[in-house]
Protein backbone atom coordinates (compact mmCIF):
# COMPACT_ATOMS: atom_id res chain seq x y z
CA UNK A 1 0.00 0.00 0.00
CA UNK A 2 2.64 2.42 -1.05
CA UNK A 3 1.81 5.84 -2.42
CA UNK A 4 4.06 7.48 -5.00
CA UNK A 5 6.09 10.59 -4.23
CA UNK A 6 3.59 12.85 -5.96
CA UNK A 7 0.70 11.43 -3.94
CA UNK A 8 2.68 11.68 -0.73
CA UNK A 9 3.52 15.30 -1.56
CA UNK A 10 -0.11 16.14 -2.26
CA UNK A 11 -1.27 14.42 0.92
CA UNK A 12 1.35 16.29 2.96
CA UNK A 13 0.34 19.59 1.37
CA UNK A 14 -3.35 18.99 2.05
CA UNK A 15 -2.57 17.88 5.61
CA UNK A 16 -0.63 21.08 6.22
CA UNK A 17 -3.42 23.24 4.86
CA UNK A 18 -5.98 21.37 6.98
CA UNK A 19 -3.93 21.91 10.13
CA UNK A 20 -3.55 25.60 9.31
CA UNK A 21 -7.29 26.10 8.80
CA UNK A 22 -8.14 24.18 11.96
CA UNK A 23 -5.64 26.26 13.93
CA UNK A 24 -7.26 29.56 12.90
CA UNK A 25 -9.86 29.05 15.61
CA UNK A 26 -7.31 28.81 18.42
CA UNK A 27 -7.04 31.93 20.51
CA UNK A 28 -3.89 33.67 21.66
CA UNK A 29 -3.17 34.01 25.36
CA UNK A 30 -5.02 37.17 26.49
CA UNK A 31 -2.82 40.21 25.97
CA UNK A 32 -0.23 38.25 23.98
CA UNK A 33 0.45 37.67 20.32
CA UNK A 34 1.09 33.98 20.90
CA UNK A 35 -0.99 31.16 22.23
CA UNK A 36 -2.70 27.91 21.35
CA UNK A 37 -2.53 28.61 17.62
CA UNK A 38 1.20 29.33 17.36
CA UNK A 39 2.49 25.78 17.34
CA UNK A 40 -0.12 24.22 15.00
CA UNK A 41 0.41 27.08 12.56
CA UNK A 42 4.18 26.64 12.59
CA UNK A 43 3.75 22.90 12.07
CA UNK A 44 1.32 23.56 9.23
CA UNK A 45 3.74 25.91 7.53
CA UNK A 46 6.67 23.52 7.48
CA UNK A 47 4.37 20.64 6.49
CA UNK A 48 3.14 22.65 3.49
CA UNK A 49 6.75 23.40 2.49
CA UNK A 50 7.69 19.73 2.75
CA UNK A 51 4.68 18.83 0.62
CA UNK A 52 5.63 21.35 -2.05
CA UNK A 53 9.22 20.06 -2.01
CA UNK A 54 8.03 16.46 -2.54
CA UNK A 55 5.72 17.50 -5.39
CA UNK A 56 8.56 19.35 -7.10
CA UNK A 57 10.86 16.40 -6.68
CA UNK A 58 8.26 14.04 -8.14
CA UNK A 59 7.55 16.40 -11.02
CA UNK A 60 11.28 16.64 -11.80
CA UNK A 61 11.42 12.85 -11.84
CA UNK A 62 8.68 12.84 -14.46
CA UNK A 63 5.72 11.85 -12.33
CA UNK A 64 2.53 13.49 -13.60
CA UNK A 65 -0.42 11.54 -12.18
CA UNK A 66 -0.76 10.70 -8.46
CA UNK A 67 -0.67 6.98 -7.99
CA UNK A 68 -0.75 4.13 -5.55
CA UNK A 69 1.56 1.15 -5.74
CA UNK A 70 -0.03 -1.95 -4.30
CA UNK A 71 2.19 -4.64 -2.85
CA UNK A 72 1.47 -8.21 -3.89
CA UNK A 73 -0.19 -9.16 -0.63
CA UNK A 74 -2.90 -6.52 -1.00
CA UNK A 75 -4.35 -8.39 -3.97
CA UNK A 76 -4.80 -11.60 -2.02
CA UNK A 77 -7.70 -12.14 0.30
CA UNK A 78 -5.81 -14.09 2.98
CA UNK A 79 -3.19 -11.53 4.00
CA UNK A 80 -5.72 -8.68 3.91
CA UNK A 81 -8.07 -10.64 6.15
CA UNK A 82 -5.25 -11.48 8.55
CA UNK A 83 -4.15 -7.84 8.77
CA UNK A 84 -7.75 -6.85 9.48
CA UNK A 85 -8.06 -9.60 12.09
CA UNK A 86 -5.38 -7.92 14.24
CA UNK A 87 -7.39 -4.72 14.29
CA UNK A 88 -10.66 -6.55 14.91
CA UNK A 89 -9.14 -8.48 17.82
CA UNK A 90 -7.93 -5.27 19.45
CA UNK A 91 -11.40 -3.76 19.20
CA UNK A 92 -12.95 -6.99 20.52
CA UNK A 93 -10.66 -6.82 23.56
CA UNK A 94 -11.49 -3.15 24.19
CA UNK A 95 -15.23 -3.77 23.93
CA UNK A 96 -15.57 -7.06 25.79
CA UNK A 97 -12.96 -7.00 28.55
CA UNK A 98 -14.81 -4.45 30.73
CA UNK A 99 -17.87 -6.73 30.65
CA UNK A 100 -16.50 -10.23 31.15
CA UNK A 101 -13.19 -9.31 32.73
CA UNK A 102 -9.59 -9.64 31.68
CA UNK A 103 -8.94 -13.36 31.96
CA UNK A 104 -11.61 -14.80 29.64
CA UNK A 105 -11.22 -11.99 27.10
CA UNK A 106 -7.45 -12.29 26.96
CA UNK A 107 -7.74 -16.07 26.59
CA UNK A 108 -10.23 -15.84 23.75
CA UNK A 109 -8.36 -13.07 21.92
CA UNK A 110 -5.04 -14.93 22.07
CA UNK A 111 -6.59 -18.26 20.98
CA UNK A 112 -8.31 -16.59 18.03
CA UNK A 113 -5.11 -14.78 17.04
CA UNK A 114 -3.19 -18.04 17.08
CA UNK A 115 -5.88 -19.80 15.08
CA UNK A 116 -5.58 -17.06 12.45
CA UNK A 117 -1.89 -17.91 12.23
CA UNK A 118 -2.80 -21.59 11.91
CA UNK A 119 -1.58 -22.75 15.29
CA UNK A 120 -3.44 -25.92 16.25
CA UNK A 121 -6.11 -25.42 18.90
CA UNK A 122 -4.50 -28.10 21.05
CA UNK A 123 -1.41 -25.92 21.35
CA UNK A 124 -3.11 -22.53 21.22
CA UNK A 125 -5.56 -23.13 24.07
CA UNK A 126 -3.09 -24.16 26.80
CA UNK A 127 -0.52 -21.53 25.76
CA UNK A 128 -3.17 -18.79 25.81
CA UNK A 129 -4.48 -19.96 29.16
CA UNK A 130 -1.05 -19.96 30.79
CA UNK A 131 -0.19 -16.58 29.26
CA UNK A 132 -3.47 -15.02 30.36
CA UNK A 133 -3.03 -16.23 33.93
CA UNK A 134 0.61 -15.15 33.99
CA UNK A 135 -0.24 -11.65 32.77
CA UNK A 136 -3.16 -11.39 35.16
CA UNK A 137 -0.98 -12.42 38.10
CA UNK A 138 2.04 -10.27 37.26
CA UNK A 139 0.23 -7.12 36.14
CA UNK A 140 -2.84 -7.40 38.31
CA UNK A 141 -1.35 -8.74 41.51
CA UNK A 142 2.28 -7.72 41.59
CA UNK A 143 2.15 -4.43 39.69
CA UNK A 144 -1.33 -3.44 40.88
CA UNK A 145 -2.63 -2.61 37.42
CA UNK A 146 -6.42 -2.50 37.70
CA UNK A 147 -7.12 -4.94 34.88
CA UNK A 148 -10.80 -5.14 34.01
CA UNK A 149 -12.50 -7.52 36.42
CA UNK A 150 -15.70 -9.32 35.79
CA UNK A 151 -18.45 -9.03 38.32
CA UNK A 152 -19.01 -12.78 38.44
CA UNK A 153 -15.65 -14.48 38.08
CA UNK A 154 -14.46 -13.04 41.38
CA UNK A 155 -13.18 -16.39 42.62
CA UNK A 156 -10.29 -15.97 40.21
CA UNK A 157 -9.02 -12.89 41.98
Amino acid sequence: MRVTDLTLGLLTLLGGIAIYISALGFKAIPGQAYGAGTMPRAIALVTVLTGIFLIFKAALAGERVPGLVLADWTRQRGPMARAASVLVLIVVYIMISPIVGFLPTAFVVMVLAMLVLRVRLLIAAPVALVAAIAIQQSFGKLLLVPLPRSSFLTFLW
Partner: peptide, 17 residues
Protein backbone atom coordinates in the same frame (compact mmCIF):
# COMPACT_ATOMS: atom_id res chain seq x y z
CA UNK B 1 3.05 -17.62 15.07
CA UNK B 2 2.68 -18.33 18.79
CA UNK B 3 4.74 -15.33 19.92
CA UNK B 4 2.93 -12.65 17.92
CA UNK B 5 -0.49 -13.18 19.58
CA UNK B 6 1.22 -13.04 22.99
CA UNK B 7 2.97 -9.81 22.03
CA UNK B 8 -0.34 -8.36 20.90
CA UNK B 9 -1.76 -9.07 24.35
CA UNK B 10 1.25 -7.51 26.09
CA UNK B 11 0.86 -4.44 23.89
CA UNK B 12 -2.74 -4.03 24.98
CA UNK B 13 -2.06 -4.56 28.68
CA UNK B 14 0.97 -2.25 28.57
CA UNK B 15 -0.97 0.49 26.80
CA UNK B 16 -3.73 0.13 29.36
CA UNK B 17 -1.36 0.17 32.32
Amino acid sequence: RVLMPLILMFCMVGSFA
